[in-house]
Amino acid sequence: MRKLKLIWDFRGPNALKTAEHHTIHLKEYVSIEKLNIDITGFEVLSDMHAIAFMVVDEQDMKPIRDALKPHRGQLYQE
Rank of each mutant, 00 (worst) to 15 (best):
K5D: 02
K5H: 01
I7S: 13
W8D: 14
F10V: 10
R11G: 01
R11Y: 14
G12W: 01
P13A: 15
P13I: 01
N14I: 10
N14E: 06
A15E: 09
L16K: 13
L16Q: 11
L16W: 11
K17W: 09
K17D: 08
K17A: 00
T18E: 12
A19K: 00
E20K: 02
I24Q: 01
I24M: 05
H25W: 08
L26I: 07
K27N: 15
E28G: 10
Y29W: 13
Y29H: 02
S31E: 10
I32N: 05
I32Y: 12
K34G: 00
L35R: 06
I37Q: 01
I37R: 05
I37F: 02
I37M: 04
I39S: 12
T40D: 12
F42H: 13
E43D: 14
E43Y: 04
L45V: 10
S46N: 06
D47G: 07
D47M: 10
H49Q: 03
H49P: 05
A50E: 06
A50Y: 08
I51F: 01
F53W: 04
V55W: 13
D57T: 09
Q59D: 12
P63Q: 15
P63E: 05
R65Q: 08
R65F: 14
D66A: 13
A67P: 02
A67R: 06
P70C: 09
H71I: 04
G73H: 07
Q74V: 13
Y76L: 15
